[in-house]
Design a binder for these strands. Structure first.
Lengths: 145, 145
DNA sequence: GTAGGGATACTCGGATAATGGGTGTCCGAGTTGACAAGG
DNA sequence: CCTTGTCAACTCGGACACCCATTATCCGAGTATCCCTAC
């Protein structure tokens, strides 16, 4: 069991969105450039984030993606759920007659402990902690556009 | 990201071991019968559990597997680690210049919260909670052997 | 009676598919803004 | 000056291919116990 690479990309991408001045839009190419990955693949991830309601897209020239949510509210858990889905990590397929599986019960509780933590941690904390992120975004904003 | 089915099998299997009277041995066929899965595949899982040091195997007729560890000490986490490995769930492959990835830091901390809980929960708790498990093992023990 | 040799019932491990999800690319379609040509 | 058409830059979505881990099966090898036969 491992987190998918897409989740990693999504978290980094959302970091940049939080670091971006509020209301500004940024394109796929620039986001891909920052993370050194292919724009086409990143766009797949972005559509998932759009469907989750965290960002929205504006087509056409000078289009791009904008953060729709309040920066302070954006938690790690929301981003992860947007990519990995909200399904439980563990599901017992065995019969188990009438009552549910006790093992599954323990596993989901453990998972909830992890999610509880990820729900508390907000992306904006890391941006405050590491100013170089907003620096990267702003430099790119003035040069390429 | 999901837990593998093998982990589910391993947890159920270890449950039966804990429910079994101390020192007794049980074969792959009987364990497979209890969980309705193929013996050959289950044996692959059992070898992992053997390498992890939780059970040991005795070849030959009347052979089988025996629990080597103290029942009370067997935690969920140990079984999971035996199957899934102890590697971290999240690893950031991006460059990040000098210092480490802050996102990775948060993710591993979250993971530790989950593991902390899984380390506390012992398999024997569930056996005490659900007596039918030991019943299943004992019935099988007298009939087929 | 005792020793030796199958037969049997197990585990062990490698080789080998089949399947599915993650990862990544390509291409056509739709949308918007800028610009230029024509009335 | 206004309208209209064209072009460029961008997002969107489907289709497709590739790789790899999981899942699963098959088979031969090793091993211990039991039993039967031969001496």
């Amino acid at each position: 069991m491992k987190y998918s690479q897409a989740t990693n990309y999504a978290l980094h991408t959302m970091m940049f969105f939080v670091a971006l001045p509020t209301g500004k839009t940024i394109g796929v190419q620039q986001l891909a450039e920052l993370q050194k990955l292919s724009p086409t693949y990143l766009s797949k991830i972005l559509t998932k984030l759009v469907k989750a309601g965290m960002i929205e897209s504006s087509p056409g020239i000078n289009g791009g993606y904008t953060l729709t949510r309040n920066k302070a509210d954006l938690s790690f858990l929301e981003v992860i759920h947007a990519i990995e889905g909200t399904a439980s990590l563990f599901h017992c397929g065995v019969g188990h007659a009438q009552q549910g599986c006790l093992i599954e019960e323990v596993m989901t509780t453990a998972e909830q402990h992890m999610e509880e933590y990820l729900k508390e941690r907000k992306l904006v904390e890391l941006v405050d902690q590491n100013p170089s992120v907003s620096h990267m975004v702003n430099v790119l904003d003035t040069s390429a556009r």
